[in-house]
């Protein structure tokens, strides 16, 4: 096995082209090292992408840009993500009770993995785009299209994730995150991220309701029914409950961890909790 630590993108792309599917880009290395036994025979080259200048968080007219190798704790500590419209990012990080992993794991890694991590759920709720680079150029793809299945994404051989972009949400937007685990330091069994935008009259103009970790598809999924229940309505507790109850359109996985029945219940409860938080945050936006 070969190890490379390229210092510019073209060098990294050349390596990715050379090794194709046998190369794995790593940054935080938590996933690769946690699975090194299984991956040992599959990986010929490890390409460390931490020297490529991809650790950053910045805001411009398009919204928020987060470099692929930005760690979860860097996101947590950053002023742009701690409160305001993107405060849900810090909340999402905070729900992972393992400080050491937060110091290592990167947003790019979480995006590529999907599966039993939290960030992709939140990013889908915020209509994030993934910026993908390779020797053939840079392209962008929505989160919704990026994930194909459990631990599977739309990257072509020779490509890597460069950045995650979150569009600036309208005023009076709030986000909410909720999570169910077996113990406080666990894989997420169910995670839920929601986003609500309100108009001046308090009517819901946009809503995202996303459940992750629990889905049969293995990737975060929007509950169309829950979103439809909210849209163009004045939100109150009863409506939130109705929206949560509509979430049965998210099919959940049944395994030895917990049953699909419990996961469906927790998706419902998580949506209710997360929507309440999102609604409160959106209304706070209203007042400010």
């Amino acid at each position: 096995m070969e190890y490379y630590s390229p210092t510019d993108l073209n060098e990294a792309y050349a390596l990715l082209d050379k090794y194709g599917e046998d190369a794995i880009p790593i940054a935080g290395s938590t996933f690769y090292m946690g699975h090194r036994e299984e991956l040992f025979d599959e990986v010929e080259a490890v390409i460390n992408i931490k020297q490529l200048g991809l650790s950053y968080i910045r805001q411009d007219g398009d919204g928020l840009h987060i470099g692929a190798t930005t760690t979860l704790n860097e996101i947590f500590a950053h002023g742009l993500t701690r409160k305001g419209p993107f405060g849900i990012l810090a909340t999402t990080v905070q729900e992972l009770n393992i400080n050491e992993v937060r110091n290592m794991a990167t947003i790019g890694g979480e995006v590529c993995i999907a599966g039993e991590v939290d960030m992709p759920t939140t990013l889908l709720a915020y209509d994030a785009d993934i910026v993908i680079g390779g020797s053939k150029g840079v392209r962008r793809m929505s989160m919704a299209d990026f994930h194909i299945g459990y631990l599977n994404n739309a990257l072509e051989p020779g490509e890597m994730v460069l950045e995650v972009q979150l569009p600036q949400p309208p005023a009076n937007t709030g986000g909410g995150f909720a999570k169910f685990e077996r113990t406080a330091a666990d894989l997420p069994i169910v995670n839920v991220a929601t986003r609500i935008s309100l108009d001046d009259a308090g009517v819901c103009t946009d809503a995202r309701v996303v459940a992750g970790a629990a889905t049969l598809s293995g990737i975060p999924e929007r509950s169309g029914a829950a979103e439809a229940a909210l849209l163009n309505q004045v939100i109150d507790a009863a409506l939130i409950e109705a929206a949560a109850a509509a979430s049965a359109d998210v099919a959940c996985i049944n395994d030895f961890r917990v049953s699909a029945e419990i996961r469906s219940l927790w998706v419902k409860c998580g949506i209710e909790d997360a929507l309440k938080r999102a609604f409160a945050a959106a209304r706070q936006g209203e007042q400010s």
Partner: peptide, 26 residues
Amino acid sequence: EMGTCGSCTLLLDGKPVFSCLRMAID
């Protein structure tokens, strides 16, 4: 050796990390 117990924690550039999840070469 998979980041689930905390025993291997050390400080890397001042931050606590699980050294079982960090490549030595890195």
